[in-house]
């Protein structure tokens, strides 16, 4: 694992008058496996896209091993939300995963090498999709589609893998397979994972962060889970009982 340090210093992101993130501080080191949880609209995806350089923060700075994203040689793999991608696009599984091997330059008459194809075979084997490499992506299930997107990110040989709700719109069996795959990958790659399936990942992640525009709680997964989820649930139940409503 290559040395890695991504630092978010006092990051704020605004969409018009809405503050998606406010003065956020976070450090990601090599070997981390961080779970990010929190309410919808709490800024989880915005934070991830800021790290990836897709969104420019309104305030604050992000450094990658002490330098800017442009100057750094950090390789970042990204698994976006399934809804961000056109699942009906006419392309095969192999072609999608191969696109992870493209160079950053726009090259005329670009052709993938045999080495690229071999690397893709290996990655498809890792995620369990080798048999489906010639399938059109519109024939894949939700779980298979997400594994393909993970495979594409892995072909970059990333130092860090950022996953945004990789188990959304996926059945329970596939959810388990994907979380188990991510756990396996976390041995070699730094991972930041956004999810709503807190219970499924709380045993795996090294650190859990509850994000709602800023970090509300972070640290030991069980403690964060107790603090962020069980406490408000108990409180709301208590309120509803006191109010005389059915629980």
């Amino acid at each position: 694992m290559r040395p890695l340090k991504i630092e978010l210093n006092e990051i704020s992101v605004n969409y018009g008058k809405i503050h998606a993130l406010k003065n956020l501080n976070l450090t990601i080191n090599e070997g981390d496996y961080i779970g990010i949880v929190g309410p919808n609209g709490g800024g989880k995806s915005t934070m991830m896209k800021s790290i990836l350089g897709l969104i420019k923060p309104s305030k604050g700075k992000i450094t990658y091993c002490g330098t800017s994203l442009k100057k750094s040689d950090i390789r970042m793999g990204y698994v976006p939300q399934i809804s961000d991608i056109n699942r009906m696009f006419p392309i095969t599984v192999e072609e999608v995963v191969l696109s992870g091997r493209m160079s950053k330059e726009i090259r005329p008459f670009f052709k993938y090498s045999e080495e690229d194809k071999k690397a893709v075979e290996e990655v498809l084997d890792t995620v369990g999709l080798k048999k489906l490499k010639n399938r059109q992506i519109n024939e894949l299930s939700g779980g298979e589609f997400q594994k393909m997107i993970i495979a594409r990110a892995l072909t970059l040989k990333p130092d860090i893998l950022l996953l945004d709700e990789p188990t959304a719109m996926v059945d329970v069996m596939s959810q388990r397979q994907i979380f188990s795959l991510i756990k396996k990958l976390s041995k070699d790659i730094t991972i930041v994972l956004i999810t709503h399936h807190v219970q499924m990942i709380s045993k795996n992640v090294k650190k859990l962060i509850y994000l709602d525009r800023n970090i509300i709680a972070e640290g030991d997964p069980n403690q964060v889970y107790q603090y962020a989820y069980l406490r408000p649930v108990h409180q709301s139940i208590k309120k509803r009982v006191v109010g005389g409503a059915h629980v």
């Binding site: 991608i85 493209m102 950053k104 726009i106 005329p108």
Partner: peptide, 27 residues
């Protein structure tokens, strides 16, 4: 046709080509 593979990747997932630091604005 000269940039067919770049177009294919860009049309499928523009965000990904941006993360790969391709000049997506040019495309």
């Amino acid at each position: 046709f000269v940039f067919y593979q770049d177009w294919k990747a860009h049309l499928f997932d523009q965000q990904f080509t941006q993360i790969m630091r391709k000049k997506t604005n040019v495309l």
